[in-house]
Design a protein around this nucleic acid. Structure first.
Lengths: 233, 233
DNA sequence: TCGCCCATGATTGTGCACAATTGTCCATCG
DNA sequence: CGATGGACAATTGTGCACAATCATGGGCGA
């Protein structure tokens, strides 16, 4: 069991909201589940803490972060600023090929929505923002956008555990129109109001039961990982 | 010697370009200089590697990153995107108090330039961009901007070891004007062209001699740290 | 009965010793 | 003379044992 693998599994589980907020991730516990030594787990935990996916408390342990409304507002505002910069940049640098890719993506999104394929629609809707970031062809910006989008997904799964709503299609459409028309100010405003709308769709979640135990979740994630890439225990 | 202190000293030395690019930072060596155990240094080194201030090579060690032109272009473009988003945001959210602070900063910059106080001017010129980021009052954006500005400083000290040039004053002035006038598109263009100008001022450095040994540099940084905050060995 | 204090158990932090990997140098062979 | 192979030295990675720290619960006193 590689340490990169452990990191990937935990990060994926955290970002997908599989591990309830506030859950304590004990070093010994994780070491036993993954069948590795404690030090291996330690390094991964510290790395996840540095990536703001876990709360590290000195001499207490690592806990899955519990989003508070202040942080949610901060994340969404950061996205408005960063992604506003992205679309402004794209207004000046979008290539024809990228414009085609954008249009194709929009059509796929709308087709999935019309066809009632909710799963596909949610997935496409989520990758739209990352797609815009990738079109800057700037690794730094892509990483920053990924980090923010990841934290957004955590927020959504926390505040809306059931509905798992996606972005509005027409809002994406208007962003695309503004970018391809090279209208900088309009693109920024479209992106900003779109993200604000997404933010207002968040509702304070009624209650968050502990659900199943952490061990069970981790074993599930472990098996899911093996199912994804070469099933070798 | 706290581990946070070690991290701060090394980060500061790296960002200021005091440690020549490509320098190997051996764990045993650092442990001896700081008078701590090797594990303490290890953790700091890994953290610095995760912050992209060091190149970590498995089973080889940690090396001060050597900037290549590709990375320089990437950093400056990322700054154009991010800081473009920042000024666009400020166009809509700048308070009167912030506008006053901006104007005061500009006047201080120009005063230092007129007075020939080069050191002050360079410092003020460097904090201008961070000041804009802080005015978003968003911790995430501030951190991202700090990271990019830090890497820029590294690039500048690498490519222009002697001149240590700063930003152009009138360029800052025009950015301020556009922001306070709430002219979004003009502000973005001003920031973008300003950063492009700064980028073109970089010259491929003629030669990078090894200079003094790493130990000497570190001891200097250590003493500088003690001089800054409570001189206790 | 309520509140405080201390002992105890559990969990994380740290130093140390050993294992693994890599780079280098020298000898030997083609 | 150049190339290749192996052994050695140096450095990093890892597991283990112990120390430090914090929550918990029971006992004692007012």
């Amino acid at each position: 069991m590689d340490e990169l693998t452990i990191h990937e599994i935990l990060a994926r589980a955290l970002l997908a909201g599989r591990i309830p907020a506030g859950t304590k991730l004990g070093e010994h516990q994780l070491a036993e589940v993954f069948g590795v030594s404690r030090e291996r787990v330690r390094k991964v935990l510290h790395r996840l803490g540095h990536e703001r996916l876990l709360n590290l408390v000195k001499n207490r342990g690592a806990f899955a972060i519990e989003p508070d409304p202040r942080e949610a507002r901060m994340v969404y505002e950061a996205r408005r600023i960063l992604e506003g910069g992205i679309v402004a940049h794209l207004c000046d640098h979008l290539t024809d090929a990228q414009a085609v890719r954008l249009r194709e993506h929009m059509e796929a999104e709308e087709a999935a929505l019309r066809a009632g394929d909710r799963a596909t629609w949610i997935r496409l809707s989520g990758t739209f923002h990352l797609m815009l970031a990738e079109m800057t062809e700037n690794a730094i910006i892509v990483r920053q956008a990924q980090e923010l989008v990841g934290r957004t997904v955590m927020l959504v799964t926390f505040y809306e555990p059931d509905s798992a709503s996606a972005c509005g299609c027409d809002e994406h459409r208007s962003i695309c129109r503004a970018v391809t028309a090279r209208e900088r100010s309009k693109a920024i405003k479209a992106m900003s109001s779109h993200l604000s709308l997404v933010e207002t769709r968040l509702r304070p979640r009624p209650f968050s039961g502990p659900g199943v135990s952490l061990d069970v979740v981790l074993v599930e994630e472990l098996e899911a990982h093996y199912a994804r890439s070469g099933n070798a225990p």
